[in-house]
Design a protein around this nucleic acid. Structure first.
Length: 152
DNA sequence: GCCAACGTTGGC
DNA sequence: GCCAACGTTGGC
C-alpha cells in the first residue's frame, strides 16, 4: 500500500464536500498535468491512503485522509465541451486524462498547515515543502505519513 | 530538437 | 494582485 498527497482548492472541492458525497466517494477529475496523471494512472492502487490537501486558500495544508477506492479510468470531463476541464485533444480512443475515485476517511482535528509542515525538520525532503513544487499529486513516504499523523 | 512566449499553480 | 517557478505550445 502506498501513500499520496492530493491537492484541491477548497472553494472548488473541499474535504467537507468529499464527506458529503454519497458514500463519501467522488472521482478525482480535472488532473491536467502529465506527471500527476502518470502517477494516478500507473501507480495508485485500491486501498492506497491519501492526504487531502487544501491549496490556494487562507490556510493551505492537509485537512484529512481519503482512500483510493477505484483505480484509474478515463476522465470523461476532458471530452465534455461544457466542462472547465475540456481538452479538445482527448477522445474515446485516446482519453489522454485519467482519474481515480477516492473515499472520505476522516478529517483532522485541525488543518496541518503548510507552515507547520515546512517547520518540521523531518519533512525537509518532502516534495510538498520544496521550492517550486507545484504537482497536484505526489507520493508520500511511510515515514512522512507517520510523521505528519503525529502532528495532528 | 531548441527555445521564446505564454499559461498555470499556488503561496504570500 | 503579485510573481516565481514550472509546464506546454508551436515556430523554426
Amino acid at each position: 500500500m502506498a501513500y499520496w498527497l492530493m491537492k484541491s482548492e477548497p472553494d472548488t472541492f473541499s474535504i467537507d464536500d468529499l464527506r458529503e458525497r454519497p458514500n463519501g466517494t467522488e472521482h478525482w477529475d480535472g488532473v491536467r498535468n502529465y506527471q500527476a496523471r502518470n502517477m494516478m494512472r500507473d501507480q495508485m492502487k485500491m486501498g492506497d491512503k491519501v492526504f487531502f490537501y487544501h491549496s490556494s486558500c487562507p490556510q493551505p495544508g492537509i485537512a484529512g485522509i481519503a482512500e483510493v477506492v477505484a483505480e484509474a479510468y478515463p476522465d470523461d470531463s476532458a471530452q465534455n465541451p461544457e466542462s472547465r476541464y475540456f481538452d479538445p485533444k482527448a477522445s474515446p480512443d485516446e482519453p489522454r486524462w485519467y482519474m481515480v475515485d477516492v473515499r472520505f476517511e476522516r478529517k483532522f482535528k485541525r488543518v496541518i498547515s503548510l507552515a507547520d509542515l515546512k517547520a518540521e525538520p523531518a519533512l525537509g525532503e518532502m516534495k510538498l515543502v520544496q521550492k517550486g513544487s507545484r504537482l497536484s499529486i505526489m507520493p508520500v513516504t511511510a515515514e512522512e505519513w507517520r510523521q505528519i499523523l503525529s502532528m495532528e
